[in-house]
Amino acid sequence: MDTGYGRRRVLALAGGMLAAPGLLRAQGAYPSRSVRVINAYSPGGTADVVSRIILSGLSARIGQQFVVENRPGAAGTIAAQAVARAPADGYTLLYDATAHSVNPSLFGSRLAYDTRRDLLPVFLTMVSPNTLHATNAFAPKAIPELIALAKASPGKLDCASTGIGTVQHVSLEFFNHRAGVQINHVVYRDIAAARSDLISGRVPLQFSNVPGSVPIFASKEARVMAHCGPEPIPVLPGVPAMVETLPGFETYEWNGLFAPAGTPREVIQRLSTELNATIRDAAVLERLHTLGALPRANTPEEFATFREQQITFFADMVRMANIRID
């Protein structure tokens, strides 16, 4: 199975499909009023913070407000369903993240919408390697030591995540598979509860992402054992890559903006152009880099290709680990 979804392949060019062009002249220039952006995640998490940084910059550029409405629940499917059913006029958008590409294989025919057909990729706002945290009291200090302990004590170690089928859960199952170990998956209701138990030592391990690791790294409340990207990460100096021990081990979290199918091509292109300009703004870029988010220029077609790669990757992982939502 090909797991190389790093920088070198994240934005491979291909012909993604967009909706047929619409006629905007009768409606006036887009946007002529505020735009509602339904965020599939809770306030305060990475997807929420990144969305507000980027959409605030976009609002300032365009002169209309892009208003974030948090609508978490059911692995992001509540928000996605709402936008899939919204008018295709560009005034209701979806801000989603990695679960978007897990859900087709996790929920299958139970999804009330078709991910590929009903939601158009607009802009990939962030790609961030996953990370592995360990409580300060945890004896292993490096990934080879963790693997040795897990092999010596099968089924005795626990790792936290915020839900079945999340990218953190998938990263754990990928680790179990590649390392030949069995570390238990422990589900928490939210990231705050999981982090509290990690810091207190109730659970020794937790997969996270770079933005979630920056404050942990700075405060030293827990350790960042490794990251799951192919290259050193400047905001996490000295943190080794998982590929140094497990070649090919790369997993990522990403965020992106979507529109309902049928949204006029002119709207998609306007948003794409302005969002690309927004992430080049020095103030926006500084806030994202400080957070540990990794924005890059991209087109709707490139984002569509990236989404397809991610759907395929997670389908393989869900099948391999037999991950189920009952």
Results as ranks from 00 to 15, higher is better:
11 L>S: 01
31 P>Q: 10
39 N>L: 07
22 G>Q: 07
40 A>D: 03
15 G>D: 07
25 R>H: 08
33 R>N: 01
32 S>Q: 04
17 M>R: 13
23 L>A: 07
35 V>P: 06
30 Y>T: 09
27 Q>G: 10
18 L>K: 07
14 A>Y: 10
26 A>D: 11
24 L>P: 01
17 M>I: 09
30 Y>E: 01
27 Q>L: 14
34 S>H: 12
11 L>D: 00
39 N>Q: 06
42 S>D: 11
11 L>Q: 01
18 L>H: 07
33 R>E: 15
29 A>E: 10
24 L>M: 10
39 N>T: 00
39 N>Y: 02
29 A>I: 09
36 R>L: 14
17 M>H: 09
19 A>R: 14
16 G>N: 03
24 L>T: 06
16 G>L: 09
24 L>Y: 09
12 A>E: 13
28 G>R: 01
37 V>F: 07
32 S>T: 09
33 R>T: 09
12 A>F: 00
26 A>H: 14
37 V>S: 05
15 G>P: 03
31 P>N: 08
36 R>H: 14
18 L>M: 06
19 A>V: 10
11 L>N: 08
41 Y>C: 02
27 Q>F: 11
26 A>T: 10
40 A>N: 00
20 A>S: 15
13 L>W: 09
21 P>K: 05
17 M>E: 08
16 G>K: 01
17 M>V: 12
25 R>C: 03
38 I>V: 06
25 R>G: 04
41 Y>G: 05
39 N>C: 15
20 A>L: 13
30 Y>N: 00
36 R>F: 13
26 A>C: 04
14 A>V: 00
17 M>P: 00
13 L>Q: 10
16 G>P: 05
23 L>E: 15
13 L>I: 04
37 V>C: 11
29 A>W: 12
40 A>S: 15
40 A>C: 04
41 Y>R: 15
26 A>K: 15
32 S>C: 00
27 Q>T: 13
29 A>Y: 06
14 A>K: 13
26 A>I: 11
29 A>Q: 12
33 R>S: 11
32 S>W: 02
15 G>V: 01
23 L>G: 11
17 M>F: 06
22 G>I: 11
18 L>W: 04
38 I>T: 02
42 S>E: 14
30 Y>I: 07
31 P>W: 12
19 A>K: 05
22 G>L: 06
39 N>V: 05
29 A>G: 02
28 G>Y: 03
32 S>E: 07
22 G>N: 03
42 S>I: 04
37 V>H: 02
19 A>L: 14
17 M>C: 04
18 L>F: 04
35 V>S: 11
33 R>Y: 11
28 G>T: 02
25 R>A: 07
20 A>M: 12
22 G>A: 06
21 P>R: 03
37 V>P: 03
38 I>F: 02
32 S>F: 02
20 A>Q: 15
32 S>K: 09
23 L>T: 05
15 G>C: 01
18 L>G: 11
19 A>D: 15
38 I>A: 10
